[in-house]
Design a protein around this nucleic acid. Structure first.
Length: 724
DNA sequence: GACCTAGAGCTTTTT
DNA sequence: GCTCTAGGTC
């Protein structure tokens, strides 16, 4: 193993294997490198069996990357080492032993939409209005309880005030429903693992003994429950290595407690603390800007991040008239920079997903390849959710939440009345809808409907059998065929239905991947569903070359040669909601810090004088974060003028400087598009127009592409050709 | 029970 | 602008 390229602090961090260790790793200081080399050092030099090592990350991507890198550094077999996310780790632990807590080992994992429908059901039963009691805020209250390891009984006992009392009661209902459904939400995974450890000391002891070396990445993002979990596992050997940067703590809203990292030295008085302050990523200009911004935060430990590189170029600041012009300018700059950089070297960051639209439009118009992280969520599409619900019910028949989703999809003539009766009966039995159906005869449900229910049960039981000896891909085909779902879509001739079918096809690439990895086994469906529950859209297949678009949150841990940050306006970033809360404002500033430090070579910052959001036009002042960057690091380009809206058809270029060149973007002026027309697009290939909206320059076409799926394009600008 | 329409609400970030 | 819900009609 070669450690010759490490600096003094990095080396120390790698070689300090015994006892508690806190690595304060500034942005771009080679944190991941240190962590992977440390693990490799344990395996290779210290001859620690891989079986005794645990490394916890927050994202699947980080976990995967770490394993890949470790495998590359050393020859030892590291396969017995656990490198996983908090949630995946807990699923693994609970899967073995959750029966101690009375749950079924074939539990389902709820996604946020499922959670919402549970809360809505509770509100309905309690005759409460969803307008007065927002399900999302109730869920966040529940999530907070769980992150704080507060059980419903305790929440109720300690509640003060009407709303507290009500919400803690709802929390209780919620947990009972989940229990009845053998379902866990994300927070349960952590909370119940801790409960299991408390209840069954031998289980805890097993993991404590096994994991002699514990690593936690992004420690500043841990919430209280995760913190507790780590403490429990590491208590026996106290070889705990945590890595983090308090300046990059941006997940307070989901319970992250920055105190966990700040108090590490109190938790472990014998702890060694190593600071990594040498930045290998960014130019001095970028770092100076980032340091200047973060320096405005009062609640932080001072840190001195040094650049290893030269000054580099100045930071470009663009002011546009509208958000559309802002998008155009990003694209122009991308085109200009594409002479020196590949598209994959560039990323556009924004505060909220809603901001991506204008930029996306501009990319589409100019046929520049891009990929969006997050945003349009593949897994929350209706047809994918339906399919997943079928699979979940097959795996876990007690999963009423999923069952209710599919009981009448496709339409089987099973309506709300029948479902209500079944639900009431299920509650009486303290069981599930699935079980209640067996008594359907006695519930005053019409015989015809009973027959339909029985048919459905038969189909599901049959599929359960099939799941034991089929590949996931085959099983998905069987589900779609046996339940009539495929027929429902194929008999519907609308383009929407066609695109849904295509999405289901697309889904099979995921199952095929799974099938390649795992041989057929009777618990494959469980494993597949667990894996699916824990992947986010972000883990997706993003190997294709293109400019990356994502939220600043999603950018944490990544780096790009060129970073665009758009929407630097008060009210957008920092968000309107936090403008008067100092603590939250500091969190936003840390987000700015994260965004700035993603850049290696160049930063391009922009804002718009007015922007349309949610159908309303608003004007915002310049973001304080932009003002906090020292003037001498900046270079303003482009004055405020009315350009952008029509520039494409005149061929005007926004870019200034030597590389300026006129570029005529496709224009379809004069072409009349109608619904049903077949077209071909430069980048997306063939498609059919499903809708035409607007007029003139604003005419929009909804097109369903054969391979690229549905898109909305501007008729006059998209590189489209009408066919036959 | 299925389908349609109008209206209202909501838009921060996510494993 | 988009999504979900409620209410009405067939």
């Amino acid at each position: 193993m070669d450690l010759s390229t490490m600096n003094k602090e990095q080396l120390e961090a790698i070689k300090t294997t015994e006892g508690p260790l806190l690595i304060m790793a500034g942005a771009g200081s080679g944190k991941t490198r240190v962590l992977t080399h440390r693990v490799a050092y344990l395996l290779d030099e210290k001859q620690v069996p891989s079986y005794n090592i645990l490394a916890i990350t927050f994202t699947n991507k980080a976990a995967r990357e770490m394993r890949d890198r470790v495998d590359k550094i050393i020859a030892e077999d590291a396969s017995k080492m656990w490198i996983s996310t908090f949630h995946a780790m807990c699923v693994r632990i609970l899967r073995r032993d959750i029966s101690y807590l009375g749950y079924d080992t074939s539990f389902s994992i709820l996604d946020p939409l499922d959670q919402q429908s549970v809360v809505k059901d509770i509100l309905k039963t309690r005759n409460l209005d969803t307008k007065q009691h927002n399900p999302r805020s109730i869920l966040s209250v529940i999530s907070n309880y769980k992150n704080q390891l507060i059980k419903p009984e305790q929440a109720i006992a300690e509640a003060g005030g009407f709303q507290d009392e009500l919400y803690s009661e709802i929390y209780k209902d919620y947990q009972e429903i989940l229990y009845r459904n053998s379902s866990l939400d994300f927070d349960d995974l952590i909370m119940l693992t801790i409960e299991l450890f408390h209840k069954e000391p031998n289980v805890l002891n097993y993991y404590q003994t096994r994991f002699q070396y514990v690593h936690v990445d992004e420690y500043q993002d841990t919430n209280h429950a995760q913190y507790q979990l780590v403490q429990m596992i590491a208590a026996k050997y106290r070889n705990i290595c945590v890595v983090g940067d308090s300046d990059q703590s941006i997940y307070k809203f989901r319970g992250a407690d920055i105190q966990n990292i700040l108090n590490f030295e109190e938790d472990y008085p014998e702890a060694k603390v190593i600071k990594l302050e040498e930045n290998y990523r960014s130019t001095k200009t970028i770092l100076d800007a980032a340091n200047a911004v973060i320096d405005n935060n009062t609640e932080r430990k001072p840190k001195n991040l040094r650049s290893n590189k030269g000054d580099g170029v100045k930071i470009e600041v663009n002011v546009s008239f509208s958000e559309r012009e802002e998008g155009h300018r990003v694209v122009e700059k991308v085109q200009q920079l594409s002479e020196d950089y590949s598209y994959g070297d560039m990323a556009v960051l924004y505060r909220a997903n809603a901001q991506s639209r204008a930029v996306e439009d501009a990319f589409v118009k100019s046929s520049i390849p891009y990929k969006m992280v997050g945003g349009t969520k593949f897994y929350s599409r209706m047809e994918i959710k339906d399919l997943m619900s079928y699979l979940k019910v097959i795996q876990n028949p007690f999963d009423d939440i999923s069952f209710q989703r599919i009981i009448n999809v496709p339409k089987r003539g099973i309506g709300t009345k029948t479902i209500d009766k079944l639900r009431a009966h299920a509650e009486q039995l303290n069981s599930s809808i699935y079980d209640a159906i067996r008594d359907a005869d006695f519930l005053g449900i019409p015989a015809k409907t009973v027959a339909k229910l029985m048919t459905l049960l038969g189909v599901l039981d049959n599929l359960k059998e099939k799941s034991k000896y089929m590949t996931m891909t085959d099983l998905v085909d069987e589900v779609l065929a046996d339940t009539g779902y495929h027929d429902m879509l194929s008999s519907d001739k609308t383009l929407e239905a066609r695109s849904r079918l295509e999405n289901l096809e697309e889904f099979k690439t995921v199952t095929k991947e799974f099938d390649n990895e795992y041989p057929i086994a009777d618990d494959n469906l469980f494993n597949f569903l667990s894996e699916m529950a824990l992947v986010s859209d972000q883990d997706g297949m993003d190997d294709t070359a293109g400019v990356t678009m994502m939220t600043m949150h999603a950018s944490k841990g990544l780096e790009f040669k060129v970073i665009f940050i758009i929407g630097l306006e008060e009210g957008i970033f920092p968000s309107r909601r936090v403008q008067f809360d100092d603590q939250e404002l500091e969190e936003e500033r840390r987000l700015m810090y994260v965004a700035l430090t993603r850049a290696m070579d160049q930063l391009i910052l922009s804002r718009a004088e007015s922007r349309m959001l949610y159908g309303k036009t608003e004007s915002n002042m310049v973001s304080r974060f932009l003002s906090e960057i020292p003037e001498e690091l900046l270079e303003s380009s482009g004055s405020v003028s009315r350009m952008g809206e029509n520039s494409a058809n005149t061929g005007t270029s926004f870019s200034r400087g030597p590389k300026k060149r006129a570029r005529v973007i496709n224009t379809n002026k004069g072409t009349k598009f109608n619904v049903g027309d077949k077209v071909s697009h430069k980048a997306f290939g063939e498609g059919i127009i499903s809708q035409v909206k607007g007029e003139g320059d604003n005419e929009e076409l909804d097109i369903v592409f054969k391979t690229a799926g549905p898109k909305r394009l501007l008729a006059n600008y998209a590189p489209l050709e009408k066919k036959d």
